[in-house]
């Protein structure tokens, strides 16, 4: 992936020099390991800071909302799908964008790695398929496939779906993954068990809204949880308020969520709120044969009526 960084810099420098774009949105190293941060590069010096490795799990589509400039943006598979969704929802124009496509073999799970090593993680490096971790307790190496983020492990769209330039040849897509094993388990529960499952899932939530803020779909100027007139949902730490926030947010993402994992990655307490969005993603697939952000040519199922839409649930 080192060559990805070089290639991204090379493309970015050219785009800026030719005035094709006003800035490049990519990643630079974070101040702690495994925490690359979004980087807005406007000059050649800025571009030198751009990097690409297995810690680019933040979804860069989130930084395009309502931008007016011409932008070059680095996009892995899921970012590109959220860019498509952004374009369909008039949050950015295709003409404004130069999409630098990045074929992706998955991002690594910083939480998992921190749990597998002793002491504090000091440095993380990678060669093609191997992740090397130096921590205060010693050195360890992992196969990248063993420490992937949960969503990346079951990703079936690793290559960008729209792009203007690619930094490398497409990577093979995963075809033998079972995307919804976890969702099916919950579907099989009875209502009591399911209630208990979600009670447990969200019990540590501190309602910091980091998940919402990291999500490219959550761009409303005032989120329903922040409104006061009327107040849609209680603002307390009561489990019912927490649950209401999560499941309403998930519904707002129905038919739009790409399972990019940015929400889960952002959570300071490690809650997998994707269990809600994934169920909706599965339903969209089952009911409407829809996967979000794959094409600019058709409208998402929830803003379009087709005479053959399923309606068995209506009595």
């Amino acid at each position: 992936m080192v060559n990805y960084s070089d290639k991204i810099r090379e493309i970015s420098k050219r785009l800026l020099k030719d005035c094709k774009v006003d800035m490049i949105i990519g990643f630079r190293k974070g101040s702690v390991p495994m925490m690359n941060e979004p980087h807005f590069a406007r000059t050649a010096e800025d571009v030198d800071e751009l990097v690409w490795d297995s810690n680019c799990g933040i979804n860069l589509a989130n930084y395009l909302t309502d931008r007016k400039e011409k932008i070059g943006v680095a996009a892995k598979g899921c970012d590109s799908r959220n860019i498509v969704t952004h374009i369909l929802e008039n949050k950015i124009k295709r003409e404004q964008l130069t999409i630098i496509g990045v074929p992706c073999k998955g991002m690594i799970d910083k939480r998992k790695i921190a749990g597998l090593v002793e002491g504090e993680v000091l440095e993380v490096t990678e060669d093609e398929e191997q992740i090397n971790v130096k921590s205060s307790g010693g050195k360890k190496s992992f196969k990248k496939t063993e420490v992937l983020q949960e969503n990346c492990a079951v990703c079936i769209h690793r290559n960008p779906v729209v792009y203007d330039e690619m930094v490398a040849e497409p990577v093979p897509e995963q075809t033998d993954v079972d995307r919804y094993e976890d969702v099916r388990k919950i579907e099989e529960m009875d209502p009591e068990q399911r209630w208990a499952y979600f009670d447990d899932l969200f019990k540590e939530c501190i309602r910091c809204y980091a998940c919402r803020n990291a999500c490219p779909l959550c761009y409303c100027p005032t989120c329903f949880v922040d409104e006061a007139k009327p107040q849609w949902v209680g603002k307390s730490q009561d489990p019912i308020d927490i649950r209401t926030f999560h499941f309403l947010r998930a519904y707002h993402c129905a038919g739009r969520c790409t399972d990019c994992g940015a929400c889960q990655r952002a959570c300071p307490v490690g809650i997998n709120m994707r269990m809600l969005t994934k169920k909706l993603e599965k339903d969209c697939k089952d009911l409407y044969n829809w996967e979000a952000g794959l094409t600019l040519d058709s409208r998402p199922p929830l803003d379009f009526y087709r005479p053959d839409d399923p309606e068995d649930f209506i009595k």
Binding site: P191, E192, R194, W195, A196, R243, I314, K315
Partner: peptide, 13 residues
């Protein structure tokens, strides 16, 4: 979510 089926119903009228 664990709401009893039957408590939530949809109709088109």
């Amino acid at each position: 979510m664990g709401v009893e089926p039957g408590r939530l119903q949809f109709s088109w009228i």
